[in-house]
Amino acid sequence: MNRTSLRTTAPAVTAFALALSLSACGAGNEEPSSSGSDSSLTGTLAGAGASSQEAAVSAWQAGFQTNNPEVTVNYDPAGSGAGREQFLAGGVAFAGSDAYLDDEELTTAAERCGSDVVEVPVYVSPIAVIYQLEGVDELNLDAQTIGAIFQGDITSWDDPAIAETNPDADLPSTNITPVHRSDDSGTTENFTAYLDEASDGGWSEGAIETWPIDGGEAAQGTSGVVAAVGNGDGTIGYADASQAGELGTVKVQVGEEFTEPTPEAAALSLDAANPVEGRGETDLALDLNRTSTEAGVYPIVLVSYQLACQTYEDAAEAELVKGWLTYVASEEGQQASADTAGSAPLSPDFSEQVNAAIETIAGA
């Protein structure tokens, strides 16, 4: 199941956004500032979820709490699966997730909230294929080879399939150690969705959130994968590109070219995104085309969501969540994420749609 993506200018979606915005204004709600700043806000807000958002959330916390000094925002980067579970159980007010809610989770969310869910993409970043291999500073791989490496079918760095796309590299006979997430992970789901769609049989396990194959090395969270790859030789893994650090990052074949994992290249892959069918007006879940051959596009993209209720029993909690998400989606918040985490800011058109959904959040 392909469960992620972002930019769209579909007239129907824009109409939904306009209708939501007009409805909110007609209800007498005061339009928030572009940064979500409101010095009247006070209290503690708890969230949990995607570890890929950790660096961005740190930037958002700093900016939002500066604008609202009487507010404390806590975020546990426990992973997308854990964040969704905590949100659906009512343990946190909002969650971060690298995969949108499935149909069963949507039903649970409606029961938990007593309303529709607000599900908005706020963080766009390439997923880098990271590696550590002594003597090899640049590496080009196609989707089929990446899939076969993580499937466990290619086990040595001097394999002919790797040599074919790296004719000038001095590839050692070092064994390959694939590193994967040990926890339920939206990053894993996005990465395997790419492999499932683009690897031409190199990967045969489908798009999954929980790693299905024995072998290799398992690590908790994005930081755990990065650490495991960095502490080895011959290691390869996958992680949000913003957290790759000094590790090597694979250039992925797209058409006849090999493309680096940059925010600009990731943003290009969002132009063909489509809204997921059958969703409510405040649910902006979208699907990606992961098999693009367009030059300059980086196809392994993470689009991470924040989840909230449209209605909260506690009006003060509703205002905290609304203020937080308004800041996160604002131009200031998106730039803070870009500066700190290397993400691609939301486009103006899509930002308008996101903010229209956030504006509907209110107390019961």
Rank of each mutant, 00 (worst) to 15 (best):
T259V: 15
T259W: 15
E260N: 03
E260F: 10
P261N: 08
P263E: 07
P263D: 04
P263L: 05
E264L: 05
A265G: 06
A266C: 13
A266H: 06
L268Q: 05
L268V: 02
L270I: 06
L270A: 11
D271I: 08
D271P: 11
A272H: 12
A272R: 15
N274T: 10
N274Y: 05
P275C: 10
G278D: 09
R279H: 02
G280E: 11
E281R: 04
T282Y: 03
T282E: 05
T282P: 03
T282L: 05
D283G: 03
L284D: 10
A285N: 12
A285L: 04
L288W: 11
R290V: 11
T291C: 10
T291L: 09
T291S: 13
T291A: 13
T293G: 15
E294V: 04
A295V: 10
G296F: 03
V297F: 10
V297S: 04
V297K: 03
V297W: 02
I300N: 01
V301P: 00
L302A: 14
L302F: 02
V303P: 08
V303Q: 06
V303S: 13
V303H: 01
S304D: 09
Y305Q: 13
Y305I: 05
L307F: 02
A308Y: 11
C309L: 07
C309V: 08
C309W: 00
Q310F: 09
Q310S: 14
Q310L: 08
T311I: 08
T311H: 15
E313V: 11
D314C: 07
A315M: 12
A315D: 11
A315C: 12
A315F: 05
E317P: 06
A318H: 02
E319C: 14
L320Q: 00
V321Q: 03
V321S: 09
G323V: 00
W324C: 02
T326M: 11
Y327R: 13
Y327M: 09
V328F: 10
A329S: 13
A329V: 08
S330G: 15
S330W: 08
E331F: 03
E331L: 15
E331N: 12
E331A: 14
E332C: 12
E332T: 06
G333W: 04
G333Y: 06
Q334N: 13
Q334T: 02
A336H: 10
S337G: 13
A338K: 06
A338I: 07
D339N: 13
D339R: 03
A341H: 12
G342F: 04
G342K: 04
G342V: 01
A344C: 08
A344F: 01
A344G: 10
P345C: 00
L346A: 12
L346R: 01
L346D: 04
S347F: 07
P348V: 05
D349W: 10
F350E: 09
S351C: 12
Q353N: 11
V354D: 00
V354K: 02
A356P: 06
A357I: 01
